[in-house]
């Protein structure tokens, strides 16, 4: 049986670990809320954006725009991989990185090369370890993404797509389903899928508003599409930030629970060891006294 002091030491060490995991759990809980609020406050813009896009698309029949055109040949694609800067958040990052690697592999089988844009220290570190050099990497933005960050990522992709250097762009990120659930997801950024521009047939009134466009529907569309891609990236960054805190909270909650369980078990064996020691001592004293009496 382990000796008393060793058990005590382990209890203390597990206790301090639990203190840390519990704190991290609480911090994550607070941050989820903020991240969620941020997603909420971005929603009006995103909705209005899609509405405008659909309105414009109705007027530009058979709209053609570089960002809508599929390239004939598929030779090189870009994947934007969004991870966190910090660990201790369960399978959050490994899911994303696994999907990214699968994507790279399946593209490679089709003879397509893949460029990776890494967001978050975890992606940068992992990819480098796997011998994949990201074409661009961003760190310290995963926690509090700004629209400027999203714009900088999006504009490089848009530029390369328009120039014909790449033939498709994807983004891999964790979608925030609810506080306890994140779902890794792959989304096609470019070419912009035409179905986002199609409206569900308007119900009720068959009358459509006749819009005026300034300078023209085509030029509005030309401005709108890049911004649309930017909002997609921004949204993904924010969903990922909220998911990160969610994943960390879950991971830290189970770590805290495990630590508590461990402390219970350890305390039990500590008490048992203590009891055993006392029992042995009494037995020795009684034995000693009996021996004296007999003498």
């Amino acid at each position: 049986m382990a000796n008393l002091r060793d058990i005590k030491k382990r209890i203390v060490s597990v206790q301090s670990t639990r203190q840390i995991t519990r704190t991290m759990e609480m911090v994550a809980t607070a941050k989820i809320k903020k991240a969620q609020e941020r997603i909420e406050s971005a929603r009006p813009y995103a909705f209005a954006m899609v509405e405008v896009l659909q309105n414009v698309a109705r007027y530009v029949q058979g709209a053609s725009h570089p960002l809508l055109e599929e390239h004939d040949a598929r030779e090189r694609v870009v994947v934007v991989t969004i991870t966190s800067d910090r660990g201790l958040c369960g399978a959050f990052n490994s899911n994303i990185l696994r999907i990214t690697e699968n994507l790279i592999r399946s593209e490679a089988e089709a003879g397509v090369e893949t460029d990776v844009i890494a967001v978050g220290k975890k992606a940068i570190g992992y990819l480098r370890y796997r011998g994949i050099e990201p074409v661009a990497s961003y760190r310290d933005i995963a926690d509090k993404p700004t629209f400027t960050d999203a714009r900088s990522i999006a504009s490089s992709i848009i530029g390369r797509y328009t120039a014909g250097e790449i033939d498709a762009a994807y983004i891999v990120f964790n979608r925030f389903k609810n506080v306890a659930e994140q779902k890794p997801e792959t989304y096609q950024l470019l070419p912009v899928e035409r179905r986002v521009m199609e409206t569900e047939e308007e119900q009720g009134s068959g009358v459509r508003a006749e819009y005026l466009f300034e300078p023209s529907a085509e030029s509005v569309l030309e401005h709108l599409l890049p911004t649309y891609v930017e909002t997609l990236v921004y949204r993904a960054l924010m969903e990922s930030a909220a998911s990160e805190h969610g994943a960390r909270r879950t991971a830290m909650k189970s770590a805290t629970d495990n630590a508590s369980e461990m402390i219970t078990t350890l305390t039990r064996s500590y008490n048992r060891a203590r009891q055993a020691a006392i029992t042995t001592e009494i037995a020795e004293i009684v034995g000693g006294a009996a021996a004296l009496e007999e003498a």
């Binding site: 309105n55 414009v56 508003a209 006749e210 819009y211 005026l212 466009f213 300034e214 300078p215 509005v220």
Partner: peptide, 14 residues
């Protein structure tokens, strides 16, 4: 510049 008053026709502009 564009000035918009109530009852303006539907418009989208950059």
């Amino acid at each position: 510049e564009v000035g918009i008053l109530p009852l303006h026709a539907p418009l989208v502009t950059v």
